[in-house]
Amino acid sequence: MNIGLDPESTHSILEKIANKFIDLLMPLIKERLEQDELMTREELSKKILRCDPDTADKRYLSKPGFPYMQPSKRKIYSKKAVQKWIAENQIYN
């Protein structure tokens, strides 16, 4: 059975399908390509939480479930994990 699509119509259909795949895949590709930044307590306080380290300790870093890694004596913080924690722990009125 011949559908009878001319090359131009076939190209147009394939282009629409390809664009749909690109729209769906680009956010996933971007996320995988972005490098995570590991930060010290001081960097996290300044860059993300925008407060001094002591305030960050009291308001955020001491909260149960706040993400950190401790490969040595000092804790380090994943920027992506902290941003996710912030998004998941918003308080709304």
Rank of each mutant, 00 (worst) to 15 (best):
M1E: 11
M1Q: 05
M1Y: 06
N2Y: 14
I3N: 12
G4K: 12
G4R: 13
L5R: 13
L5S: 06
E8R: 12
T10P: 00
T10Q: 15
T10F: 07
H11T: 09
I13S: 07
I13N: 01
I13F: 11
I13Y: 04
I13E: 01
L14A: 11
I17C: 09
I17N: 05
A18P: 03
A18R: 15
N19L: 14
N19I: 09
K20P: 00
K20N: 13
K20D: 08
F21K: 02
F21Q: 04
I22R: 03
L24K: 10
L24Y: 09
M26W: 04
M26Y: 07
P27I: 06
L28N: 08
L28K: 14
I29V: 13
E31I: 00
R32P: 07
R32M: 02
R32V: 08
E34V: 11
E34A: 15
Q35K: 15
D36A: 00
D36N: 09
E37T: 13
L38S: 14
L38Y: 14
L38W: 01
L38P: 03
M39I: 12
T40V: 02
T40A: 04
E42H: 14
E43G: 07
I48N: 00
L49H: 08
L49T: 12
D52H: 12
P53V: 03
T55W: 00
T55Y: 03
A56M: 02
D57F: 01
K58E: 04
K58L: 08
R59D: 09
Y60S: 07
K63L: 08
K63G: 01
P64W: 04
F66L: 11
F66Q: 10
P67L: 02
P67G: 04
Y68I: 04
Y68N: 03
M69E: 11
M69Y: 12
Q70T: 04
P71I: 00
P71T: 11
S72W: 09
K73A: 05
R74E: 08
I76G: 00
I76P: 01
K79Y: 00
K79T: 01
K79A: 04
K79C: 01
K80T: 10
K80G: 03
Q83V: 09
W85C: 04
I86W: 03
A87D: 10
Q90H: 13
I91A: 15
Y92H: 15
N93R: 10
